[in-house]
Deep mutational scan, measured.
Amino acid sequence: TETYTFDSEDQAEEFAQRAQKKGYTVEKRKENGKFKVRVE
């Protein structure tokens, strides 16, 4: 499980979609103005 942090929602969304296409489970959340994407 890895967590990635992005400054913009667009970046987080793009990353999450790519990860989902590769078959990963993706969980997105906003925390302290940053966008976190957890991938497993």
Rank of each mutant, 00 (worst) to 15 (best):
T1Q: 11
T1D: 11
T1G: 14
T1L: 10
T1A: 14
T1P: 12
T1E: 10
T1H: 12
E2R: 15
E2F: 15
E2V: 15
E2I: 15
E2M: 15
E2T: 14
E2Y: 15
T3G: 04
T3L: 08
T3Q: 06
T3M: 08
T3S: 07
T3K: 03
T3H: 06
T3V: 12
T3R: 03
T3D: 10
T3P: 04
T3N: 05
Y4Q: 03
Y4D: 01
Y4F: 12
Y4H: 07
Y4L: 05
Y4C: 10
Y4G: 01
Y4A: 03
Y4S: 02
Y4I: 04
Y4M: 04
T5I: 13
T5D: 06
T5Q: 07
F6G: 00
F6V: 00
F6N: 00
F6Y: 02
F6P: 00
F6S: 00
F6Q: 00
F6W: 02
D7R: 04
D7P: 04
D7S: 07
D7I: 06
D7Y: 06
D7M: 06
D7H: 06
D7F: 06
S8R: 10
S8F: 10
S8M: 07
S8K: 07
E9T: 03
E9Y: 09
E9P: 05
E9F: 08
D10P: 07
D10Y: 09
D10A: 13
D10K: 10
D10L: 10
D10V: 10
D10W: 12
Q11Y: 06
Q11L: 12
Q11A: 14
Q11H: 07
A12Y: 02
A12E: 00
A12W: 04
A12K: 00
A12T: 01
E13S: 07
E13V: 06
E13R: 06
E13T: 08
E13F: 06
E13A: 07
E14V: 08
E14N: 07
E14D: 11
E14C: 06
E14M: 09
F15I: 02
F15H: 02
F15A: 03
F15Y: 05
F15R: 01
A16M: 13
A16K: 04
A16R: 04
A16E: 04
A16G: 04
A16Q: 04
Q17M: 11
Q17D: 11
Q17E: 12
Q17W: 09
Q17I: 12
R18V: 10
R18M: 13
R18P: 01
R18K: 11
R18A: 14
A19E: 08
A19F: 11
A19K: 06
A19R: 04
Q20R: 13
Q20L: 14
Q20N: 07
Q20D: 05
Q20G: 06
K21I: 09
K21N: 12
K21M: 12
K21G: 09
K21D: 13
K21V: 08
K21A: 13
K21F: 08
K22T: 06
K22P: 05
K22L: 15
K22E: 14
K22I: 09
G23Q: 02
G23R: 01
G23W: 03
G23P: 01
G23I: 00
G23S: 02
G23K: 02
Y24G: 04
Y24D: 03
Y24F: 13
Y24M: 08
Y24P: 01
Y24Q: 05
Y24H: 07
T25W: 12
T25K: 14
T25H: 13
T25V: 12
T25E: 08
V26G: 01
V26Q: 01
V26N: 01
V26F: 03
V26S: 03
V26K: 02
V26I: 08
E27M: 09
E27K: 08
E27C: 09
E27L: 09
E27S: 13
E27V: 13
E27F: 12
E27G: 05
K28A: 06
K28R: 11
K28L: 15
K28D: 02
K28W: 10
K28P: 03
K28E: 04
K28N: 05
R29N: 09
R29T: 15
R29W: 15
R29Q: 10
R29H: 13
K30H: 11
K30F: 15
K30M: 13
K30I: 12
K30Y: 15
E31D: 07
E31I: 07
E31N: 03
N32C: 07
N32A: 08
N32V: 03
N32P: 02
N32W: 04
G33C: 04
G33E: 06
G33S: 04
G33A: 04
G33M: 04
G33I: 02
G33V: 02
K34W: 07
K34H: 08
K34G: 05
K34R: 08
K34V: 11
K34M: 10
K34Q: 10
K34F: 10
F35Q: 01
F35N: 02
F35G: 00
F35L: 03
F35A: 01
K36T: 15
K36L: 15
K36G: 04
K36R: 07
K36Q: 14
K36W: 12
K36V: 15
V37F: 01
V37W: 00
V37N: 00
V37I: 08
V37K: 00
V37A: 00
R38W: 10
R38A: 08
R38C: 05
R38V: 15
R38I: 15
R38E: 09
V39I: 13
V39P: 01
V39E: 00
V39R: 02
V39C: 04
E40F: 15
E40N: 12
E40A: 12
E40H: 14
E40T: 15
E40S: 15
E40L: 14
E40V: 14
E40Y: 15
